[in-house]
């Protein structure tokens, strides 16, 4: 049986075509507009949530009017001290307006923040002091 030369044999082999490969799963890039929205929407949501958080936080904290802006307390009303955190600024103000250090401390303890008792009512402290006098 005659055997063809190398060149002919190579030609014969090349007639066999390798089978095609499966398509490549290419990760496609998102279009620019889609990328823009995919960034903007979560960012906007975060900003809105932060804004809501700070708004609610601001509402729940009582606003303390500065000493000078406090309304004058009408006669016949008493004030009750309530426990509120003292800021450095408020402490400085009290020290500046008080005649002595002891007076400033008294102010801090009893007069710094006051709640007005409705007219015609007495605070428990006043009622007790009246009973003592009797």
């Amino acid at each position: 049986m005659p055997i063809p030369d190398d060149e002919q044999f190579e030609k014969y082999l090349r007639q066999f075509k390798p089978l095609r490969a499966d398509p490549l799963p290419v990760p496609r890039r998102q279009p620019v507009l889609a990328r823009f929205w995919s960034f903007i929407v979560p960012a906007f949501a975060v900003i809105v949530l932060l804004a809501l958080f700070f708004m609610l936080r601001g509402r729940s904290r009582p606003v303390i009017a500065p000493r000078a802006e406090r309304p004058a307390i009408p006669e016949g009303r008493e004030e009750l001290a309530i426990a509120q955190p003292l800021t450095l600024q408020q402490a400085n103000e009290l020290m500046a307006h008080s005649p002595s250090f002891t007076a400033a401390l008294d102010n801090v303890a009893f007069q710094r923040q006051r709640r007005q008792v409705p007219q015609g009512s007495l605070s428990a402290l006043t009622a007790l002091s009246k009973e003592d006098k009797l």
Partner: peptide, 19 residues
């Protein structure tokens, strides 16, 4: 390789019969 391949394939005839 080519020699061996040709010998193996010629055992099954096809490429050799064409020449």
């Amino acid at each position: 390789a080519l020699t061996n391949l040709r010998a193996a394939m010629c055992a099954w005839e096809e490429p050799c019969a064409n020449s």
